[in-house]
Design a protein around this nucleic acid. Structure first.
Lengths: 207, 207
DNA sequence: TGGTGTTTACTTACTAGTAAGTAAGTTTAG
DNA sequence: CTAAACTTACTTACTAGTAAGTAAACACCA
């Protein structure tokens, strides 16, 4: 009764997501995917008739995974600081995993050259991420673990912007740049800088 | 005696830069340029034999213009706060001019899919911009007009990251997002928020 | 001053490669 | 035996890039 899951479809999404983060939407092709997967061009068209649909599917899956991640942490009552650091760990993984960029940043950089349905999906993803972060920041402020001026929404926007920019700049300037920005963000939130030698590593892999 | 300046070459660079900021490097073609300019494909190849060379030329010209801008302000002794706001005005113009992204951000987003010589040019541009901003921040701190923790280099990195990210996010989330980030950055630098209704507009067009 | 190269700035007309996308046939598992 | 998951073989459109030709401006010299 359950759908006869082919794992090719998921493999296509995995590969597309990876290529998106490495090259951007307009610089990867069905050929790139099919070669990496060892299937033929048309196999991808079977699962995703056109590239816009594939793009939307990648973004929506990414957003679903993000929501699941948030839900998991909310269920187990993760505290604001751990939440923030868990969130930092996402782009950090991208960076370590072959200098990948964040999908949101890539797609917003190419915003003028992606299909309309993808733009809508990007807007949704952007709103959802900022919504999550706003909550975490606001909670942290109420619990006196973060200090900042202005609304939590504004601060969340600044943090997301900085992370997104930093991840991109790190591709040109190296990994250290990203760590620096994270440290600076925490500093600006009034988060105690425990550790000093061990710091950056263990601090951020979190979970 | 002076070189017989053709303005086609400059027009090509203008168009390429504009297309780069709107669509990204891999989503614009020689056709796009030639159509917009009313010349033929091959005319562009005459001035820029290959696309990598065109890309490098765009970045290097952008960097030269940036250096000229900095030099002009240094000569007339522009103060740190005005310097900072003048710098903010650059991406602000991009945003108002048809939701363009910053060339640096676009190219770093596509970093995995641009030719090597372009990567070098991007690295140089990135270093130069951060170098300028570090100086302005450091001077401002010495003159007690900015307050921040950590090195000026680290703070500059955060500011550049945030601006770059914010400019991209504004394409999905609207102009207001960018203004918000600028306000938040100034707040974090301890800059007095004069005005309240007139604010954002007149505050930022600067000069 | 006039004629003769030469250079600049293109156009016309092409190539080879790659892009997304499709139609029709084949394999395989339930 | 049927439907899902492909492959084979193709099309159309665009990509960067090239080769060869041309018109006009310039450079130099007698």
């Amino acid at each position: 009764m359950s759908p006869p899951r082919s794992n090719t479809k998921d493999a296509i999404l995995d590969t597309a997501e990876s290529l998106l983060q490495e090259r951007g939407f307009n610089a990867f092709s069905y050929q790139h995917i099919s070669e990496q997967l060892g299937v033929k061009n048309a196999a991808i068209h079977y699962h995703f008739p056109n590239k816009a649909g594939l793009g939307v599917a990648v973004i929506e899956r990414y957003n679903r995974n993000f929501h699941d991640w948030v839900a998991r942490h909310q269920q187990r009552g993760t505290k604001p600081l751990a939440m923030l650091r868990g969130y930092f760990a996402i782009p950090l993984r991208f960076m370590r995993d072959g200098q990948k960029a964040c999908p949101l940043g890539v797609l917003e950089a190419e915003f003028g050259a992606i299909p309309d349905p993808m733009r809508d999906a990007v807007r949704t993803l952007d709103a959802d991420i900022r919504g999550f972060l706003s909550e975490a920041l606001e909670q942290g402020r109420q619990q006196a673990v973060f200090q900042f001026n202005g609304t939590a929404q504004d601060k969340a926007l600044l943090v997301v912007s900085a992370l997104q920019g930093a991840l991109q700049i790190s591709r040109a300037a190296g990994t250290k740049a990203f760590m620096t920005v994270i440290r600076q963000i925490e500093r600006d939130l009034g988060v105690e800088e425990q550790r000093d030698k061990i710091s950056s590593q263990s601090l951020l892999v979190s979970r």
